[in-house]
Each structure stands twice: as C-alpha cells, then as structure tokens.
C-alpha cells in the first residue's frame, strides 16, 4: 500500500460527472494535485482547469500518475476499473456505491495479478493530512495531521470520529475508508499491517460495523501477529435487527453471523480497546497511547 506524496499527480476517472466535478474542486482546494481526468468521449474538455482525456492510458502518459480515484456510475465501474488496471494504475480508489459483487470480485482478481491496491468500492477514499493528499469525498476540516491511523467501513463515522480526534488534539497519519460492501479491495488486516510499519502512525483506530467477519478475522490477525501498536475499535450496530440490510450492502446479520457482539468480543479477546460509542474513541486513544509509552 503506497499513497501519493505531496504534489504527486492523481487522476480522476469520471471527472465530468456531477460528483467527479464537485470533488475535483474539493480535492484541488485541499492541495491535492489532480493532474488529469478522464471521461470517454469528453477528451479535450477541462474541469476546474484540469485537462480531460478519453482514456486512462492517455492521462497516465501525459501526467505519469500511478493513482486514480474513480467516480463513474456503478454499471460502468468494472469496465473503468479494468481500464485503469490495464493502463498501469497502482492505487485505485473506487468511491462508487452499488457495484455488483461479481464485478468487484473480477476487479480484485485482476488487481491482485497486477499488484495493485484497490480501495473500496462504496467508500469515502483516503486522506493523508500531512501530505495534503485527498483521494476521496471526505470533508477536509474534520482531519488534521498527526499520528493516529483511522480505518473505517463507514464514511460518516470516519468523519465523525476523525473530527472528534482532531478536536481532542489527535491528528491523523492517514484515514482510509475500506468500504461498506460485502466484498472490498483492501482488507482491514492489510490496513493494520500497513500501519504497523508506517513510521508516522503511533496508534490505530478501527471503525467496524455489523455484517460479515472482517473484524473477527482482524482480531485473529492481531493475536497471531502480536501486533505492536495500540488499537482502539468502535463497532456500530449493537442494536441492529437481524436479516435487514442497514444502509450498506455489507451491513446485514444472518442468524448469528455478523453480529456486533461477536465482533466486540473477538476484538476485546485480542486485547483491543473497544469504545461503546464514537464519542469514547478519543479518550481510549489517549489511554492507549499513554499505556504504550
């Protein structure tokens, strides 16, 4: 997992759409170098003075970028993602919600064969405050530079918790939304491995929710690898009904599979400090950092 450094060029796929346009503006405002955009058939135009190309290949050739953030509609995400992977993109952020599961699986397979990091789909993207790099849709004012890495399945909870950390004086080394779908390109375990070797990161906050077993797998991974940095987790959905999809395609409990209780118990069992509400997170981070110092 390698993120762009300050000033390194980034491509926006689907730059001429409503959200592509809006967030290109916000990413530029933050200081991110959006060097090119793509939309098939719109080559030659510009958006916020960023040149638009027909293909990712052209955009890569002109800018040398290896990172792309993708805003295209769900039904075209697979084709656009494959285009990026074939054009040599090494970091692909899929913001789009409602991508069919089998399209995501095909992208993940192709990405793995090419050694590409895929983030999302159905995610807010990533932000590295110290580098002024924002590849996503998160509101910049919630984030500040610092030593806490935040990884979240939910967008708004990531903003809310980052905002509270910022208010409490804990900036973020990176904040990354892995996505709310049943299957996503980057696993929580991979995020933790990154954070462990990431020098600026002093503590990790994991924001999970009901559905699937990503948090249970994460807990096993933490125990097995004797993880070295302090971790604080928050899991949403303790009072969620079963068999109902709650907002995210992946947020659903089947029988006893995917309950918040199972996730909280697993993480506690692995020595993770678990917050019962988002508001408790900054205090637990403070305590965890003090204990590890």
């Amino acid at each position: 997992m390698i993120f762009p450094k300050k000033g390194e060029p980034v491509i926006v796929q689907g730059i001429t759409g409503k959200y592509g346009r809006l967030h290109t503006r916000f990413m530029l405002d933050y200081g991110t170098n959006v060097a090119a955009g793509t939309t098939p058939g719109k080559g030659g135009q510009s958006v916020e003075e960023v040149p638009v190309y027909n293909t990712v290949r052209e955009a890569v050739d002109k800018t040398g970028s290896r990172s792309s953030v993708l805003f295209v509609p769900a039904e075209f995400t697979r084709v656009a993602g494959e285009e990026a992977l074939e054009a040599g993109i090494k970091l692909l952020v899929l913001i789009t919600e409602h991508v069919p599961i089998r399209d995501t699986l095909r992208l993940i397979q192709l990405g793995q064969s090419k050694g590409v990091t895929i983030i999302g789909p159905n995610c807010p993207g990533l932000i590295v405050p110290s580098e002024r790099v924002k590849m996503g849709i998160m509101p910049a004012p919630s984030f500040s530079p610092g030593g806490v890495a935040v990884f979240s399945r939910s967008g708004t909870l990531m903003y809310e918790i980052a905002g509270q950390l910022t208010n409490a004086g804990f900036g973020q080394s990176v904040a990354l939304g892995v996505g709310g779908d049943p299957v996503v390109g980057t696993l929580a375990t991979e995020c933790l491995d990154f954070a462990e070797s990431h020098e600026q990161t002093k503590a990790v906050v994991v924001v999970g929710e009901i559905g699937g077993d990503a948090e249970e797998r994460l807990a096993k991974h933490i125990s097995r690898s004797a993880y070295k940095k302090p971790i604080v987790a928050y899991i949403a959905g303790r009072h969620a009904p079963k068999e109902k999809k709650l907002g995210h395609a992946g947020a659903i409990i089947y029988g006893d599979y995917g309950t918040a209780e199972s996730k909280i118990n697993a993480l506690k069992g692995a020595g993770v400090s678990v917050a019962m509400t988002p508001m408790e997170v900054p205090d637990l981070v403070k305590a965890a950092l003090a204990a590890s110092a």
Partner: peptide, 17 residues
C-alpha cells in the same frame, strides 16, 4: 434520520442503550 449508514447505525445504538 441521519446522513450516512454508519452514523445512523450508531444512533440506533445510542437510542437502544
């Protein structure tokens, strides 16, 4: 009512508690 799936989910938890 809220904006964002995770935020509404966490609001349900606060309400349930």
């Amino acid at each position: 009512v809220g904006n964002g799936a995770g935020l509404v989910l966490s609001t349900l938890d606060l309400l349930g508690d």
